[in-house]
Simulated scan of single mutants.
Amino acid sequence: METSILTEGLVKRYGSTLALNGVDLAVRSGTVRGLLGPNGAGKSTAVRIMSSLLRPTAGRVEVAGFDVVRQPMEVRYRIGLTGQNAAVDDVLTGRGNLEMFGKLYHLSAKQARRRADELLEQFGLTEAAGKQAKTYSGGMRRRLDLAISFIMAPQVLFLDEPTTGMDPRHRMEVWRGVRELVGKGTTVLLTTHYLDEADQLADVISVIDHGKVIAEGPPAELKSRIGGDQLDVVLSNQDDIGRAAAILAAVAGVQPVVQKELSRISAPAVHRAATLTEVVRQLDAEAIVVSDIGIRQPTLDEVFVRLTGRDVPQEELV
């Protein structure tokens, strides 16, 4: 198996704070690796080290076959990076930014103009192409930043929270662009708060918490680890969560996953219809009103909560 990203025992300390505590990753070439974890888990620190922007305290990191500490320029020549903050030239127009970067990637002036036109249309920026980037909204700047990283197909592309704040239509455009790059052989490492994004794009997901990888596998495999079908109950009154959770725990035999902000409780439904019938009977007996109830397949939300013991990051809930 050819790997484009390899970390072994990756450690990063900031004084007495241990941001990364022995991260091991092996990302197969031409695939998408999702890196999930709570805020402060170490995801962005790992990306900065892998993209040669930050030196590790200990451990080894290779990207595209080169050591990021000893051969940083070789690494930078082969990667693309979109960080959490858009890095565009405010004075240039949207088109000017894209054409400038196209020329830096050794495209001819004609090729750079053609590629700029394609990306402006793809990311919904055609109407604003002639405006200075400093006049763009935050979401537009983010889309322009992503468009720049898509100019060429880098060997490895790091996407750190690429679609935060985007509307669904533009998120789907980014997903399409990522799939196109991967189809051309690019390896993508993606950090995201949107669990559906990881589910849609990632071939393998690594869950990181407290600076360590605590679980890893394809999305379907991670979901299977918390059981099969799930009973999902959404309450009309959030004050009933405690009593309803106790009922689900007694019927399912395990502690349910509670998402208080959504008034939602989930638990394994081993016997499907029998489990659903018994829960409905007990909720009715306790006069607990539900707005929705049913059996469904588990999601990455449950995986995240079960593995980390924390709620899904707020960005996922909006």
Results as ranks from 00 to 15, higher is better:
residue 10 L to S: 02
residue 15 G to E: 10
residue 16 S to C: 03
residue 16 S to R: 15
residue 18 L to T: 07
residue 20 L to K: 01
residue 27 V to K: 10
residue 40 G to V: 10
residue 41 A to D: 02
residue 42 G to E: 06
residue 43 K to I: 08
residue 52 S to R: 08
residue 58 A to P: 04
residue 65 G to F: 07
residue 66 F to L: 02
residue 69 V to W: 02
residue 69 V to H: 00
residue 70 R to Q: 14
residue 74 E to C: 05
residue 77 Y to C: 04
residue 77 Y to S: 14
residue 81 L to V: 14
residue 84 Q to E: 13
residue 86 A to W: 01
residue 88 V to Y: 02
residue 91 V to H: 05
residue 93 T to D: 04
residue 95 R to H: 12
residue 104 L to Y: 05
residue 104 L to H: 00
residue 108 S to E: 09
residue 123 F to P: 12
residue 125 L to H: 04
residue 127 E to W: 04
residue 128 A to V: 15
residue 129 A to E: 13
residue 131 K to L: 11
residue 131 K to M: 10
residue 141 R to Y: 05
residue 144 L to E: 07
residue 147 A to H: 12
residue 152 M to A: 11
residue 153 A to H: 09
residue 160 D to K: 08
residue 164 T to M: 06
residue 164 T to P: 05
residue 168 P to W: 07
residue 181 L to G: 05
residue 191 T to Y: 10
residue 206 S to C: 09
residue 209 D to E: 12
residue 210 H to Y: 08
residue 214 I to E: 06
residue 217 G to R: 03
residue 218 P to L: 05
residue 232 D to R: 14
residue 242 G to M: 03
residue 251 V to F: 07
residue 276 L to W: 12
residue 284 D to A: 15
residue 287 A to G: 09
residue 287 A to K: 15
residue 289 V to C: 08
residue 300 L to G: 00
residue 303 V to E: 00
